[in-house]
Design a protein around this nucleic acid. Structure first.
Lengths: 215, 215
DNA sequence: TAGATTGTTAATCGATTAACAATC
DNA sequence: TAGATTGTTAATCGATTAACAATC
């Protein structure tokens, strides 16, 4: 268990997938699995799966495999899915509202406690249990509440400025949906969801396929 | 220009970023740039940028650099942003509606022509210029209209089945927002936006930082 | 025990970086 | 011309895969 070494981001991005497939195995009533079986499900090689898991410890049993529930719990613990997280969303437009209403976060205990916007038409509305507040109240709010994660769903023109304000108020984890790369100090982690970049690469591959077809 | 070699996905995923920063340079009124300047903006090494671009051709001028507008156009052409694309969205819930209303696709000519859902409360509503239709009309619709890209925003339980139906009707490019890996034939390209996986890795890094802080 | 599968080391592969000749 | 910066080859680095001893 070398918890102190830096784990490659590629490994971290595979963990949620293992976690998801282990959940499916549980649902199917299976309590034992192997790197070979996980390989078939995920498409990653069995060797890679064993390498990945052994970054965090030996969760398997030689000659036997892995206990599904145990391995799932271990991955949950590694990712931190065994804890509660309070989230705020900045920008209550299309994307902000969609995230607020998104039910796909059930795996862990994520709670959207508030949204912030500057549009008076939106302020005062509520999404699920979260109220849309005036962006001017953001700092005051952050001084009182203990927020773990901030989601940026503003237009890109203000995203950098909003991010800086968040960091000044103590936020250290940002989930960024604005199509812009935020310049942030090292102690802030930014996870980007760049929808346009995703769509552009899909477009590239779509055209590649059409090219091949017409050859 | 070795258009026929397979370009690494890592390269393709950087292209939209180059494209975006070149747009910013244009806005700033600059018409000349260099791999060094792009390196400072994007955070990728100058060497990598030159390598990436030279997968597609020599767009620069030795001793001078790159013409901003020309390079931007070339990347647009490589990605296919110089063409029009018709999109449909399957599932008109939170995410589906957000995508339909998303204005961040202005770079290229993407048009959402219809949404599909099975919820009678949603059917008949319209998002921007697109109508929400009954999912039962999907096949008929695809037989008549020429659709380039389908976006899956359904619950994960039906995503695989929906994807198969789309492929049967000729769809070859899928933008998948359902938290599930679609099993698809090779001639279909799937681009995944797995929001929960993204949030989970953010959670991991958030906890890592807290661990460091308390050491 | 024999068979199976992990944990882990070594080999391979691919992607990134460095270096530099070409040349504007 | 001299300085600058590309295009491209070679070197390095890191991640993936293969192999196999450990062991259940």
């Amino acid at each position: 268990m070398n918890n102190n070494d830096k784990i490659s981001p590629a490994v971290i991005r595979r963990l949620p997938k293992y976690y998801r497939y282990l959940g499916e195995l549980t649902k199917m009533g299976l309590n034992k699995t192997s790197s070979r079986e996980l390989s078939e499900m995920t498409g990653f090689s069995a060797s890679q799966i064993r390498q990945d898991l052994n970054n965090f410890g030996g969760f398997g049993q030689q000659g036997f495999g892995y206990d599904v529930e145990n391995l799932r719990n271990e991955i949950a613990r590694i990712l931190g899915l065994d804890k509660k997280y309070k989230i705020i969303i900045i920008g209550a437009g299309n994307i902000g509202q969609a995230i607020a209403n998104y039910t796909g976060f059930y795996e862990a205990d994520y709670e959207v406690v508030a949204l912030f916007d500057k549009n008076p038409k939106l302020i005062g509305m509520s999404m699920r249990n979260a109220l849309i507040k005036d962006i001017d109240e953001l700092e005051e709010f952050l001084n009182v509440e203990n927020i773990d994660i901030a989601v940026i769903c503003t237009p890109k023109s203000v995203s950098q400025q909003v991010a800086e304000q968040l960091v000044q108020c103590g936020i250290r984890a940002i989930w960024n949906f604005a199509p812009k790369d935020l310049k942030m100090p090292d102690y802030v982690h930014v996870e980007n969801v760049h929808l346009n970049e995703s769509l552009f690469s899909l477009t590239y591959y779509y055209n590649q396929m059409n090219k091949k077809k017409s050859e």
